[in-house]
Amino acid sequence: MPADDTILSMVVSGRRRDGDALVVTLRPVDDRPLPPWEPGAHIDVLITPEITRQYSLCGHPADSATWQIAVKHQPPPRGRGGSDHVHANWEVGTRVEVREPRNNFPVRDADDYLFIAGGIGITALKPMIDSVEAAGKKWSLAYCGRSLSTMALRDELAEYGDRVRFFPSDEQSRVDLGELLDTPVEGRLVYFCGPESLLEAVQERSAAWPPGTLQFERFTPQTHTLDEDAVSFEIELAESGLSLTVPPHKTILEVLEENGVTLLSSCRAGVCGTCETTVLEGIPDHRDSVLTDEERASNETMMVCVSRCIGRRLVLDI
């Protein structure tokens, strides 16, 4: 798939049940070193052509040979079919396509950390915990779940002794958020990952903390595709002979840059006119505010930083 170089071909090289999750080890098909990632990162997994899901990387960043993700089984109607497919169909040897790691949840430097995990949210926090432990920082973890038997990564975490406390709700063991959060501690950052309901409670109890001390990631369906109608399309470059695919979440300009086609660009927001490019074939979907109505209608040029394609294909004079 040279057209979209962010997609990595992986193969399932290990799978084990851990609580109510399936911990899956992925290795690259070509066994080349994987791109680096930092705690908090996630990958898009292209489960089927229709279903893409995000999973936190929960192994060790130093491991450039394999990645681990933990997939909690959530059958429909609560789940939306992704985890059902993974649990039913992924075996050792199954081929899986993923995108390179992205990180919306990086760990900031602090003296002291409080981690709060709800259920499968532990997967985002586990690499953070390993890294702050390795850095010799002070930390503690409160891990809430339905029952001990459903809570993933429990054995690895148990090695950290009494810095980790488990709160399985079926044993009437409820986390006391007041005890954890009512008194702000100077220099401490709070990292939370879990369901919306628990997040609300955590946010409420941490109101007295200075702004920015609570860092969180919630489980919500992610809307990466910002324009509902955004689709992928093809561009052909007349001068270089390249033929490339522009996926919904990237611009023509980004795809050109990733393929070594350099083009001067400035604002990258459709207002400055620097990246104006001649169109030889196809109809651009003009989204800039530079061209006049007449220039738009002529479809002779386009701003490749924001404008897209009406239809399937554009031929550009580059």
Binding site: L264, S266, C267, C305
Partner: peptide, 23 residues
């Protein structure tokens, strides 16, 4: 993921330095 920003504003009064500044 790509989405245009409004740092230079938009339309007829957008920033005249939007080409120069980023260079």
């Amino acid at each position: 993921y790509a989405h245009p920003h409004l740092a230079f504003g938009d339309g007829r009064h957008s920033c005249v330095g939007s080409a120069l500044g980023p260079q």
